[in-house]
């Protein structure tokens, strides 16, 4: 019963591994999408998980249902996310931004409920989810599923390492895309619409069309996140895509700093590091008897880690409301 018994090496290895695992990639991609929506175009999307689900199902169904080749399956996943953006955006983007917010949160749940419904069972396999799509991707993978890959003590099994590598490549490409767009005149129009839609319209910019483009782009990048999830877990289950997940994406975005290219990725990595670090440390503290079970047992750590992350986020908002990368100067302009 002493601090010395705690295996910090193990805790750190676990935390760093999780920080760069495919789950972090899923969060990063979803938050990059949200950053385009909210950070640059000013769109309030509270249903990003719906785009993630559309991407995952689009890719999965392409193989289980239509036997497409895996590359085409990815394209279909992106098209699914884009169609979802059109369904949400066409009727709501002419209205005030609140309407999009209301519609998105409901629409994301509708996607999940339809996917898990009994009626859809012949297509989506209901609550069981899609499981038979992974074969063609495994064939593409240069890593053998059973082998261990990694850098130093940070290791993945080959089956998941493929998702990790593909995922980080997608993150890199998405960041390049966002960086290029936001320094272009296109990005200028989108940011202008975020600031004042009427001003942009008075200068000849079709605000509606740009908002739709931004919604589609951010949604498709979120959809890529769904595909990485599918590759990593080798399954697409409807109940992965629950509504609260969207708010974890938001958390990741705000942690990093809204409207900064790198921020969502940084946020995702820090978030997964923190969650894993707190969980593993807590578990060892309980195991070693440093925290008596009368206060907390190991099964409660899963909940308590979210308390701690929540408290940390609250403190961040007090002392650094712009997030890690955001600009305080810009935040101050809002208060004027």
């Amino acid at each position: 019963m002493s601090l010395a018994a705690i295996d910090w090496g193990f805790i750190l290895t676990q935390s760093v591994t999780q920080a760069f695992d495919f789950n972090a990639v899923v969060y990063a991609l979803a938050a990059i999408g949200l950053n385009i929506h909210f950070g640059y175009a000013g769109l309030l999307n509270f249903g990003q998980v719906g785009f993630v689900a559309m991407g995952a199902y689009g890719m999965g169904l392409s193989i289980t249902l239509w036997q497409l080749n895996p590359f085409l399956a990815v394209v279909v996943g992106m098209i699914f996310a884009a169609i979802f953006a059109l369904i949400l955006g066409l009727p709501t983007l002419r209205l005030r931004s609140d309407y999009l917010a209301i519609v998105t949160i409901a629409a994301a749940e509708i996607v999940r409920l339809i996917a898990r419904s009994t009626v859809m069972r012949p297509i989506t396999r209901g609550a069981e989810g899609l499981n038979e799509f992974i074969g063609p991707f495994r064939d593409l993978s240069p890593f053998s599923p059973g082998q261990i890959y990694g850098i130093g003590p940070i290791e993945w099994r080959g089956s998941q390492f493929f998702a990790v590598v593909v995922g980080w490549i997608l993150v890199a490409l998405s960041l390049l895309l966002v960086a290029q767009l936001m320094r272009s005149p296109w990005g200028r129009v989108v940011k202008a619409i975020r600031e004042d839609e009427d001003a942009a319209r008075a200068l000849g910019k079709n605000a509606y069309w740009y908002k739709l483009q931004a919604l589609i782009l951010g949604g498709v990048i979120g959809g890529l996140g769904g595909m990485v999830q599918a590759l990593g877990n080798a399954t697409v289950q409807p109940d992965f895509f629950v509504a609260p997940l969207t708010f974890f994406f938001w958390l990741v975005l705000i942690l990093g700093g809204v409207g900064r290219v790198w921020a969502p990725v940084f946020g995702a990595v820090v978030y997964w590091f923190m969650i894993t670090f707190i969980q593993n440390t807590g578990r060892q503290l309980v195991d070693e008897g440093l925290i008596p079970t009368s206060i907390m047992d190991t099964s409660q750590i899963d909940q308590i880690r979210f308390w701690i992350v929540g408290a940390a986020l609250a403190l961040l908002m007090v002392f650094r409301p712009q997030g890690f990368f955001g600009s305080r100067e810009e935040m101050a302009l809002d208060a004027r």
């Binding site: 272009s184 005149p185 202008a192 910019k205 483009q213």
Partner: peptide
């Protein structure tokens, strides 16, 4: 447009910008 610089505000005003099309922007 408060969170854009003054010169970016100005540049927004120009019409028929090629870089305002999504794919050209890339």
């Amino acid at each position: 447009l408060t969170k854009l610089s003054v010169v970016e505000n100005m540049k927004l005003g120009a019409t028929h910008q090629r870089g305002e099309h999504f794919f050209a922007a890339l």
